[in-house]
Design a protein around this nucleic acid. Structure first.
Lengths: 199, 199, 199, 199
DNA sequence: TCTTAACCGAGACGGTACGTCTGGTCTTGAC
DNA sequence: GTCAAGACCAGACGTACCGTCTCGGTTAAGA
């Protein structure tokens, strides 16, 4: 039923695929997303343009795959559970602060977040592949804490997770404030302060 | 000694300015931000391209002005203060939910948020002109509540505001969940629950 | 020490060869020479591109072979010699007029003549395989007439042949006039009028 | 009724037009017609591709204009008429031999003749602009000779002109023989020999 | 009231990148 | 080893816009 016969992925060149990822990530860091071009990627990767168009529908899709390929061992093992929720959250969020302050990480991630805002299809993939897994481990840890009695029964874990992560994401994406270790410490304390069961 | 002599704004055509705003907002809704072009705006507005380039540096800037012109009476009068913080917040956030679910509002706002993610300069303007004023009224109301003893002394009001608004913004921008009245009600309750002074 | 090992023509697929000829002739008639592509021929013939590249150096060469294969019994038996030179020439040229007015013949022949103009190598083959044999029979007939005393001794037969055939070819190739039976009759009479011995 | 609004030729850049002609003629000589590209012409001329596409429909049209611009003072003054037809024809044809043997002339002329063979529209323009004027002066000279009694009354001047010029053109285009002064001398003598009135 | 200088609509210009098409090479698996 | 199939690198196609520029016209100061 497809109008364009799909390419045969078993014959795909792995060498080209990697070269395209490397080129895309390097270029988005050098020139920014708006000036990132398919031609530029192809040229840098030593690849024909058609090889990109054959496998991806847009530069955003290329970048998403490239970025995903570089981080997809992301958060396989879950959050630590030392028994002290605040400490666990702070230690992971501090590491995340450092990651988000790394220029090599920022350019593609910002670009994808931005592209997603205008492209619902891309947005869904971006969220499902990059954001949801990261979010889920926090939600799991909070639920564990709730079962352990560290968090009040009535708390909506999904919303609690948002209270913890969205301020962080928003600050970073919109540049409404600096991301520091102190900031996440305060954030964690203030959020958890409200979640603890009242005596 | 400027190399480009600045245009004389006193001779500016108000008719053209409005036509450009109307065209920009209409087009961004019809074709989306990526396919919005200066030529398209000029053509739709019945205006020469140079008239746009004379007054704005980029399509994002045009859109920002166009959008701002449509909403800049935004939040001049502050939040209501009935004495009941939760009710006040819920009533305003419910109205905001409706606004953010309006398609005519979404396209330009998303476009600007996205453009800002990749353009720091634009981002600062966007935040200062559109986000900061809206955020500030919440911060003011929370501070008033803190002074009234409704909110614990140790609470960082800036972060409390983020805990309230960022989950909302994030959900909408990333489409990670629906924006409903029930959602904001729960969010307000859960955030405020943690801010109240402990006995 | 050839760098490209020559293909083994004994293992060549006759089926593919014919399918390629048929496809090439059909396509040149349908879409014209400029839009005739190797890929198109391969696809229409149900043949891999490499099978064409293995055996021919260019689309012109394919077309030349295809066309030659269809006409190479061309003029094996020479011109008729009824003793009346003018009648003999007219009868053959009238048949040639009909042939050159046949659309199925025109497209490939024009294409080859044109390709030859820009490609000396191809031109030599085209002339040797398609034009020279046809020209030669006229030259032979004129020489026979000269020996029979119907044509003056001083006449250069090669040039006389050109005077007869080139106006015809030129009219057709450049579309400078219609090719009709009347035209070739007049042409033959006027050319022969000048070749007859003067009393 | 035009679907694309025509460009405003009064605003056309003469500088660009000339640069395009120069580039086209230079490149067709250097790389040949088949490897002549619009991009190549634009690049060599220091011109945007659109400036070519705005004014010409194809590379053949560009080349035709470029070539015409270089020769359009072609044959304004007619053939000489010294009273001796053969001498007049020989002197002009000898000059034409030299011109057609000039490499700078050959490439574009061959290219246009070839392109015309496959493109009827172009062919008409080519003939009307480049061939017909040249042909006409021969026809005029022959008619004058006919009126002066040098050529028999029954002769069809149009065909006589073809007998004179087509062998020349054909030899050159198809490379079926060398173009020399001796050749045209013999050709003129043999053609005229047949046109003279019989006693 | 009459310049006159700036803005205006229009659109040609030199460019860049788009997404597509084809050229010619190379690889794979079937025969 | 040839074949059909088609992925690959390369690069031209013709189009769409970019941001700059030039052209008349109009329009609002200022002489």
């Amino acid at each position: 039923m497809a109008d364009k016969t799909a390419p045969d992925s078993s014959r795909r060149s792995e060498r080209s695929r990697r070269a395209i990822f490397d080129a895309a990530l390097a270029l988005v860091g050098e020139v920014g997303y708006d000036k990132l071009t398919i031609e530029g990627i192809a040229s840098r990767a030593g690849v024909g343009k058609q090889t990109i168009y054959r496998w991806w529908p847009s530069k955003a899709a290329v970048l998403l795959d490239a970025f995903t390929a570089g981080v997809d061992d992301y958060s396989a093992q879950g959050l630590p559970d030392t028994g002290d929720l605040a400490t666990d959250l702070k230690s992971v969020l501090r590491a995340t602060v450092d990651e988000f302050n790394d220029p090599a990480f920022q350019a593609p991630y910002r670009a994808l977040a931005a592209a997603g805002a205008n492209d619902e299809e891309l947005s869904r993939t971006f969220v499902a592949r990059l954001m949801e897994p990261g979010t889920q481990v926090y939600a799991d840890r909070l639920r564990a804490a709730q079962e352990a009695g560290e968090v009040a029964d009535g708390v909506d874990v999904r919303i609690a997770t948002e209270m913890l992560l969205s301020p962080f994401s928003q600050r970073w994406l919109m540049r409404t404030g600096d991301l520091t270790h102190e900031y996440v410490d305060t954030l964690v304390d203030q959020v958890l302060g409200g979640l603890r069961p009242r005596d």
